[in-house]
């Protein structure tokens, strides 16, 4: 028998090549799938601005101010010497609560979650308080609200000096 082992593969080599082949195939397939998955997340999306300038602290009377609610989804709440920017997204399932001035509470129409003026939840199915956004003063004395930075009560973040303005 003139079997040339240099040119053809022996059994062991064949299987190791096969393994390498399958590993590469699997890796390539999962790579392509991962790319398809990544494709579903756009790099840029055209949603409302995450930062806005909200006048001066003296513009706001004590209590809840709704002027930025529809445009930026923010309530400005002035209470106990603090001015805060409160998110208007219900922490239950993302509906928009209504501010009920007579009862001094935010009430979500979808499932009846209720929040105090401070944003703390007290009734309904919601698991946690409303979120607060970063507020700061610009050099020209105007308030800047930054919605990219979120402060949560249950993590103890409401003591963070960036989460409110002393007024």
């Amino acid at each position: 028998m003139s079997f040339d082992s240099k040119q053809s593969l022996n059994r062991r080599e064949f299987f190791s090549y096969l393994t390498v082949g399958w590993v590469m195939f699997t890796a390539a397939t999962s790579g392509i799938l991962a790319l398809c998955f990544r494709f579903t997340y756009p790099n840029v999306n055209f949603e409302p601005e995450m930062e806005f300038v909200a006048g001066t602290p003296s513009d706001y009377p004590a209590g809840v101010d709704e002027r930025w609610k529809n445009s930026y989804g923010v309530w400005m709440v002035k209470q106990e010497g603090k001015l805060i920017a409160l998110s208007n997204i219900c922490t239950h399932l993302g509906c928009i609560p209504n501010w009920l001035p007579a009862e001094l509470k935010f009430k979500c129409p979808c499932h009846g979650s209720g929040y105090y003026m401070s944003g703390i939840n007290f009734e309904g199915p919601t698991p946690r308080p409303l979120e607060r956004f970063k507020v700061g003063l610009q050099p020209d004395g105007k308030i800047k609200v930054d919605k990219t930075k979120v402060y949560r009560w249950e993590k103890g973040e409401w003591d963070n000096p960036e989460s409110f303005l002393e007024v």
Binding site: L93, G94, C95, C110
Partner: peptide, 20 residues
């Protein structure tokens, strides 16, 4: 939009894969 807001709000609560 509100039915879908409520419905997709649940996806937000998916363990490990939703932000809430």
């Amino acid at each position: 939009i509100w039915a879908i807001t409520v419905g997709s709000g649940m996806a937000k609560a998916t363990p490990f894969m939703g932000n809430a």
